[in-house]
Every structure is written in structure tokens, then in C-alpha cells.
Design a protein around this nucleic acid. Sequence first.
DNA 1: CTGAAAGCGCTAACAA
DNA 2: TTGTTAGCGCTTTCAG
Lengths: 340, 340
Amino acid sequence: MQTPTLRDVAEAAGVHAATASRALNPATRGLVNVDTARRVIKVADSLGYRPNPIARGLKTARSGTVGVVIPDLTNPLFPPIARGIERGLEAAGYSALLVNTDNDSGRERAQVESLLSRQVEGLIVATALVEHPLLEELHRRGVPMVMVHRRPDGFEVPSILPDDAAGVRLAVEHLAALGHRRIAHLAGPTTTSTGVVRARAFHSAVRDLGLDADPSLTTTCALWSEESGAVALRRLLDGGADLTAVVAGNDLIALGCYDVFTERGIECPADISVVGFNDMPFLDKLRPPLTTVAIPHHEIGTEAARLLLDAIGDPTRPSRSVLFPLSLVVRGSTAAPARG
Amino acid sequence: MQTPTLRDVAEAAGVHAATASRALNPATRGLVNVDTARRVIKVADSLGYRPNPIARGLKTARSGTVGVVIPDLTNPLFPPIARGIERGLEAAGYSALLVNTDNDSGRERAQVESLLSRQVEGLIVATALVEHPLLEELHRRGVPMVMVHRRPDGFEVPSILPDDAAGVRLAVEHLAALGHRRIAHLAGPTTTSTGVVRARAFHSAVRDLGLDADPSLTTTCALWSEESGAVALRRLLDGGADLTAVVAGNDLIALGCYDVFTERGIECPADISVVGFNDMPFLDKLRPPLTTVAIPHHEIGTEAARLLLDAIGDPTRPSRSVLFPLSLVVRGSTAAPARG
DNA sequence: CTGAAAGCGCTAACAA
DNA sequence: TTGTTAGCGCTTTCAG
């Protein structure tokens, strides 16, 4: 015999299926005689009854699942967020359906449709390249939604963002405290909001701290990649930039700097200090271990889950966004400048 | 109006819902007049009809989903496997439901139950610590299943395994070719099949190649972790072991060796060469970049998906297992020994 | 080739 | 407090 159905339980307990349903559902248990309820529960238990959420979903249009849209699971940023989300959901009895989009808007649309047709009750979207029309359409359709690491510009959706500006400021303050005055910034692509926000924050931090605000100390990377970072630093150095420290747009860009150091015999941190951003895994294994700004991915995930559950519970609730504080992880790649 | 239902389509096309169903389902389309079918399809298309897989699943007990059970998504081993699985499934129109178990057998059981109750048609299990009873029970229940990176011992389940033995042999051969004769092995935990298999392969490789088969050159790590690796290497060194190279059970263990090198002023590869296993991300960024055995995770995932789809398609098909060839990625942590 | 009718497992009125 | 009756959206006999 296959997994027993509600009817089997009802029959075995000598009650009607509806009564069994009520007894088994904590929310409606109050409507049922305490003894009957107890009996039904016992029978269900002994039969190993598991409610079929599919059948339930068909009736209630609720599935107990939410969709999590991630551009690329192999990017170490996302797994901790995904785990945080799972953790945040499980207390409420929800579970997450993860999908990869590979940053392809066609795939993304298909995946989202598939999630929706599986009756997810809401979406957590962590994509940077989300195609706007899709998001806006979903929002109009009233799909509960939370964005992670990105805020849409046209409309109001709750979002969870790392406080990039504060993070960059931490990095610059740290370098300034060590005595650096000529700090360069290898900004992330201007096509990403993150890149822009961090660059802007860098400039205000430099200004506020009264450091050398030389425009020739800033350059932009074409991609968030090691190779782009290397290219950018070479460009700066070849242009004769006089710098003692670098704030990289993210860790990969910082890794690119390491490559240039090796290539040109530059000592880090003696000649140039470097700060990354993200605190990817294994950064502490580099030589020197990379100082970087850490993002609490797991907490961000948990919070995203909470916001989404809130939105599902009360769709009229005004959308609330949260900015997460970051912290600086000081390792070996930063030190006082060797020269004045 | 919400997403249109089959009835809406049928009505708009002037046919009965049953006919519309047949026309829309490629498998039954033959039973319907070609023109009618065409018309229905056109109407469905123009209405933006999406079949509700939940309703369908209720009837057919098929859901188009498979469950993927992963111990820890933040372990860089697994994301590429997950992506491979997704890729392998998508062609067949299936999608994957990912769950984390955190290596907790209670969680694992709960997650698997939840997957099953969501009508997944099969399971890809990548857990090392899978509690046997669960697996065996699932197997008895006839749940189609594929194991990744592990073979159950009591019963027959298709599994995809990296050819660990061949990988270890590659590592040892590489070191032998460089002139090493006294090679140590920091084995993974004996509680894991991987740990045991690699250790055994190490010993036969050493023997076959006529190297020094000194038992004092082998030790076992309590965990697959950096810290355990460091502890193990210290133990060997403190015991006065005379070695010029180390084959580590995996990359994390190799990283532990790096820590000991730093701690004790040992030069790598000049004093001691190290080979890892897995080719985690960013190993090329270490100083020195780690030579390691690479596992084709993505391909393994794709193949796992294929095997599972096969098993779902024909549950009687005899279970087939595949051993995946590995390759050695030579980087800077291995070189000829400095002394004879 | 197409329609009618039943039912997958569950829940939500409504009635008793 | 419990049972009856529908029906979620779809597929699948079974007739016609």
C-alpha cells in the first residue's frame, strides 16, 4: 500500500475525511472534539500519514514554497545567502526552490514562470541583471517579492542591501588610520549599481577624511573579474599614478592586483596595501591574506526570508527595505606605507 | 483575469476540456484532429495558457521535478554539481529542487520527506553521511535514486563516482616523476568511503611505483578540514617523519599543510611538495598555487541527471554506475625535491 | 475523432 | 462538533 491518504486515516479513525482534515490541521483543530482529534492524530501517526501538499495546494492555492532566483550558484556570494534563506523559511514551515538564471534573461523568465506555475507563494530575487520588464510585470501581477543585493528603480519592492557605502568608508578609514594618503580605487563596472555606489562612497570618504582626491587615482574595471582588476591596476601604474594603497571594487579585482604585484615585483603590503570587498572564502589563504570588507550573507538571506514571509502574510504591508551593516576584516594585505 | 485554465482555452476554442487537454499534450495529440489540435494550440498560445503542473501532478503522480539532496551548499564542491544536474534535467523539461541537509540526519530525513511529499519523481543524493536506513528504505519504497560521490554498500543504486583511485595515482606518479621517493599521505577520515578509497589507492600506487612504502608516512585526519590537515602534518613532522612530498586527502587538508609550512618556516615546494584533491576555486591564487587533482563536477552532475531520468523512465532498468576520470592540474606547489 | 463523467487528495462552505 | 457536498485544474477511462 502506498502512502496512506487522508481518507485512509479517516476511515481507520472512524470519522469523515473532513473531520480528519480539521483534526490534523493545527489551525482548525479547535473546531473538533479534543478526543476525536487526539484519536485521529494517533491513527495518522501510526499509519505514517503525510499530507499531500500538492493536493492541498490545488485547493488553497498555497504551496508552502517560495522561489529563489539566483544568477549563478557557483559564485561564492550566493550559497550562504541561499542557506540563510532556507533557515529563515524553515521555522515557518516553508521551503525554498532554488533556480539558476546564468544571467540570461531568457532563462530567467523561463525559470520564473516555472516557479510561478509550481505555485510558489513569493520570490526572492538575487539577480543583478534582472530584466526590468519581468520584475515590473511580476510586481504588477501582485507576486510577493523581495530583492537581495539590488533595488529596482521604477517601483517599490522590499530589498535587502549591504551598506556598501559604509563598507567602503570602513576600508578607507582603515587605510587612512595606517597613514595612507594616496589611495586608489579600482571601481567595479559602472553598469552595476554596486560599482557605482562603491565608487561614489569612495570619493566621499576620501574627501571627508581630507586625503588626496586625485582623479588619476581612480579607474573603472570592465568586469568584476580578476583579469579586469589586473588590467585596471596596470593602467594606473603605467599612467605613473603615485599610490600607496588600493581599494578594490571587490575581491576578484583585488586578486587581479596580486597578479600585477607578482608580475612587477611589487611587495604587498610593503609597497602597496590592498583592500577587497565581499570576503570570499579562502581569502585568508592568500599570500598575503587579503584584508576585505565582509558582507553577512547568511543574515541577509535570513532577513530576506523574513521580509518575504511578511509580504506573503500581508500583501498590503508597505514595502520596507533594510541596509545591512558591513564589517572590515583586517588581514595581511594592509599595513602602514613604507614611504611618507 | 488570472492565468487562464484549460477550460478557458477549451471554451475559447469551442471544444471540450478533454479535447483541449489531448491537443495540448504532445503525447496524446495524435488522438485529435489535426486542425482542431492546431486551433486549440493557437488559442492556448494567444491566451498565454500555462498548464498547472500541480493539478497535472495530482492526477498523474508526476511532477516534472527531482530532488537534489546536498549536505552543504557552501562547500564549493557542490554548486558545480548542482548546475550540472540542472543542465542535465532541463533538456527533458524537468527541474531540480535543491535541499541542504547540513550533514544532519534528522534534517536529511525531514528534507527528503518534504521532497517526496512534493512528488519529486526521483532523488539525486550527494550526501556523504547519509544515514543508511533512510537510503535503504527509499530504495525499498522504489524511489528512483542516483548517488553522487558515494556508493551505498548494502544494495544496488546507480552512482556516479570520481575515479579517486586513478586520481591519487596521477598525483603519486607526478611526484615520482619529479624524483620524490618518500611521499606522505594525509588521509581523509576513515568514516568516509572517499577517505578510505584514496588511502588505499595511495598505498598501491606507492607500491607499484617502487617508492618508499613507509607506514610512518601515512596518517589520518579526523575531518576533511584545514585544521585537521595541519594537525596531521604536525604529527608526522613531530614524529620525525622524513618526507619530501605530501599527497593530501583533499584541498582543505592541503591548505592545512600550508599553515604548518608558514608556522615552521618550511618552503613549499623547495622543502616539501604538496598535492591536493578536488580543485576548489581560487587554488591558483595561493602562494604557491596548489597542484591538485581536478574532478569534473559539472559533468558528474549532468551524468547524474541522465542516470536518474533513465531510472525514472524505466524503473526496471538495471542500475548502472559510472566512474569519472580525473585529471591532474599541475601548479606551483610541486617541484623536484631539493635533496637526494 | 470528440464529449461526458469521474476522480487524483485535500479543504471550505454549508447543513445537521 | 461532525458530516455532506463541491470543487481546485487536469487527465483518463468510457461511450458515442
